[in-house]
Design a binder for these strands. Structure first.
Length: 727
RNA sequence: GCUGCUGUAGCUCAGUCGGUAGAGCGCGUCCUUGGUAAGGACGAGGUCGUGGGUUCAAGUCCCACCAGCAGCUCCA
């Protein structure tokens, strides 16, 4: 006879086998109707399962999840994925089921299906889903021992599920299934009580995916959809998606001449047009001033460096695949590089080796110590030896090694630490072509980078000051909604360099400072950089979308690799600690994000063109020039619309160009020594003297006032990362 | 990188069955000289992503490459 405790503290005894629905019905029939799942100490389960089966606690802490709880939405969506899979199986022959989890915004299901599904098929599938929902059949859970589970999926001809039970679920002695009518699926659950609870759903898109996310595996068809408890919510979500599309920085960037990516220049290589460059320069100038105030020293470093530098740092071996290939001074360089890779992979037969040797000889190269009869290691050593004698450069993929060399350029005393070296450093990364995305993912990018070298006693203070800097710059552009992701290593992985002890220390330091900072943060294992843990700023824009922008990283490893030292008070050498940090992240990504956040309508201080003078007729030109020069004097970016169009047309065009202030000048304004001010947001503000207008605009600019960013009333677009409900 | 879709004027797009290219916006010139979101007329502008192939004939059909988009995978 289980005792149940509800969140208000009330405890009541129920008969054995009572379910969450029974508990809800005990309160009201209406609550029973809207209860979709149950939360027991954070464990979410079917509302139709006996509570005494779910928990041994006494009393059992029960929280009923209704269609108002966000956790319930995930349950609903996963059930909708089952409904979709059921509909697809009714409409197509030989459907293989893969995975069908929920995402932040909906759900998907991966199908192994010969026949391609296209968006034209959606109405048909949706109609079938609607029919299933109308039948409102229950989702029934049942559990089978392993061998019976294997038998069942094999009887159902579900090969992928069979494979998954064998490999992915090897340690599960029993497996749960959900049945809905003729549809049976291996599933961890939980599910809503019956399909009738799905009130609003929509198929969104179809795309390719791979079994278990591995490109070597079978290609599957992924059908995306979303579902809500309420039609209104679905409508609002779809509007939000439309709004996000409308703000696409690639579209707005073209329309407002902010940047362009020209075929002739190359994939992922961004051209900053004058207007976009203006926004960037303003941000750079702003942060440069702040850095001087905070004790940073400016440095510059070249765009390329010797490959050995990045071999020492670890970047070259670690990220080889996503770097531009090395630049060689000798024509045989490429050959040797390729040769080494083949040897490394133990993939070089005698014929190929003979060809390589002949080609090298043809270029006048002999490798000291290389013998066809020698061991792989001896051959590699000989090739490396030759290579080290050659010019071999890399486009720099990171600024840190260069800054490390600047630190190394003179002996350092503890008295001069911390040393803070800052540079807007341009780096090049050969991102996979499918990853490129406007300014958000490019192959040449400029980081607002800096490296701090300090003693281990100074780390906490420096790290904390850096967090403060990031907060300050985000605030300056009106981004005040963010959380911090503390990215830690995965303890048993070999992806990371350095001593586990140093890692523990670094992770502990970050956790300490973040805990004391009052900032919202969560920990994420396996997300660290290969050399150290990091704190990433996840910033929410006005649509509630999260962007990873600024980052602060703690690094005990590079100082080790480069043998960095300073002389301590004890006159002995000590190893400094490094902090990598970039408040904006990259200028490309940051400006791209700002374009979407502001929908290209930048606040006055960032607007490429702040003021446009609109003459009422052609006779006003000289007066307009007179006013313009006063605004230019005051540092405003201005222009005059000299076309002989009428004022309505000039205003419309300025409005569409998102000019913050339009100054209309006609005979009346000239006679009174002023201008008619039109605000992009408020509209006509009427006549002002030139001095009054200047004062108003100067104030708004210098305070970096942010206007016209309407926060979405929607809960926000979630991330599209997988959330669960699958085994 | 993989799978699918797309590539026509500066921009957004139309172009039927293979028969040598069209609109709107923008731009230029002229007319208009006006008080807060489109005044009018005329005009310039295209080797149809690139290279091959099929054909009497290719923007249109086929192949390869380049680039973009969506998704997957990746992100120091």
């Amino acid at each position: 006879m289980p005792n149940v405790q509800l969140p208000d503290g009330a405890v009541k005894e129920y008969p054995a086998g009572a379910t969450a629905i029974d508990v809800a019905r005990d309160i009201s029939e209406r609550l029973a109707q809207s209860t979709v799942a149950v939360d027991i100490n954070g464990f979410i389960a079917d509302a139709t399962r006996p509570l005494d089966e779910l928990s041994d606690a006494d009393p059992i802490p029960v929280k009923l999840l209704t269609n108002r709880d966000s956790e319930a939405l995930g349950v609903l969506r996963h059930s909708c994925a089952h409904v979709m899979a059921r509909a697809v199986m009714r409409l197509y022959e030989g459907v293989g089921l893969a995975f069908g989890p929920t995402t932040g915004n909906g759900f998907y299901y991966d199908f192994d299906l010969e026949q391609p599904i296209s968006e034209e098929d959606f109405p048909r599938i949706e109609a079938e889903m609607q029919a299933i929902i109308k039948d409102a059949e229950p989702f029934e859970r049942f559990v089978l021992p392993r061998d019976e589970a294997v038998q069942l999926v094999s009887d159902l001809d579900q090969e992928l599920k069979t494979e998954h039970i064998a490999n992915g679920l090897a340690d599960h002695p029993t497996l749960s299934f959900y049945r809905q009518g003729e549809f049976v699926d291996l599933c961890r659950g939980p599910h809503i009580p019956d399909a009738g609870r799905i009130k609003a759903f929509k198929l969104i898109s179809v795309a390719g995916s791979y079994w278990k996310g591995d490109a070597k595996n079978k290609q599957l068809q992924r059908l995306y959809g979303t579902a809500f408890f309420d039609k209104k919510d679905l409508k609002r979500y779809l509007e939000q998606v439309e709004e996000a599309k409308r703000r696409d920085h690639r579209v707005l960037g073209k329309q407002h001449h902010l940047f362009s990516i020209a075929n002739e220049v190359g994939q992922g290589l961004c051209l900053w047009l004058p207007k976009g460059a203006t926004v960037r320069v303003l941000l750079e100038d702003f942060i440069k001033k702040e850095l001087l105030r905070r004790g940073y020293d400016p440095v510059y470093s070249p765009h390329i460096g010797r490959a050995e530098l990045y071999e020492t740092s670890g970047h070259f071996p670690y990220y080889r695949d996503s770097q531009f290939p090395p630049l060689f001074g000798h024509p045989a360089g490429q050959l040797v590089d390729y040769w080494k890779q083949r040897l490394d992979a133990d993939d070089l037969n005698e014929d190929t080796e003979r060809d390589f040797l002949a080609a090298a000889a043809d270029m006048g190269v002999e490798f000291e110590g290389y013998s066809a009869a020698g061991s792989r290691e001896e051959k590699l050593a000989a090739l490396r030896k030759w290579e080290r004698q050659q010019e071999r450069y890399l486009l720099k993929p990171m600024n840190c090694p260069h800054h490390v060399e600047i630190y190394q350029s003179q002996p350092r005393s503890y008295r001069e630490l911390p040393v803070r070296l800052a540079e807007f450093g341009t780096v090049y990364r050969h991102e996979q072509s499918g990853e490129l995305n406007g300014m958000l993912r490019v192959r040449g990018l400029t980081q607002d980078d800096a490296h701090l070298f300090c003693t281990s006693e100074q780390v906490e203070q420096e790290f904390s000051d850096t967090l403060d800097l990031v907060k300050f710059v985000l605030q300056s552009v009106g981004l005040d909604d963010y959380r911090i992701q503390l990215s830690l290593r995965e303890p048993d992985s070999d992806k990371y360099v350095g001593d586990p002890g140093l890692w523990d220390r670094a992770e502990g330091t970050l956790r300490n400072v973040l805990s004391g900072s009052g900032l919202e943060f969560n920990e994420c294992e396996g997300e660290a950089a290969f050399y150290g843990p990091k704190a990433d700023f996840m910033v929410r824009d006005c649509l509630g979308r999260e962007w990873q922008l600024g980052t602060v990283q703690l690094d005990y490893n590079l100082p080790e690799r480069f043998n960095l030292e300073y002389v301590g008070a004890d006159n002995a050498p000590h190893r400094p600690v490094m902090i990598h940090r970039a408040p904006f992240g990259s200028m490309e990504r940051f400006v791209g994000m700002l374009i979407e956040h502001f929908a290209a309508a930048f606040p006055l201080w960032l607007a490429p063109e702040q003021v446009r003078l609109l003459g009422l007729n052609d006779d006003m030109l000289s007066y307009a020039q007179e006013i313009e020069s006063k605004f230019k004097q005051a540092g405003f970016r201005t222009s005059i619309d000299t076309r002989s169009a009428n004022i309505k047309k000039k205003i419309r065009d300025a409005q569409l160009d998102l000019i913050p202030y339009m100054l209309v000048v006609g005979p009346k304004d000239r006679d009174q020594g002023g201008v008619s001010v039109r605000d992009r947001i408020e509209g006509d503000l009427g006549f002002m003297t030139t001095e009054a207008a200047l004062k108003k605009l100067t104030e708004e600019r210098d305070h970096r006032t942010i206007r016209q960013v309407v926060k979405s009333n929607f809960e926000g677009l979630g991330s599209d990362t997988e959330e669960g409900h699958e085994y």
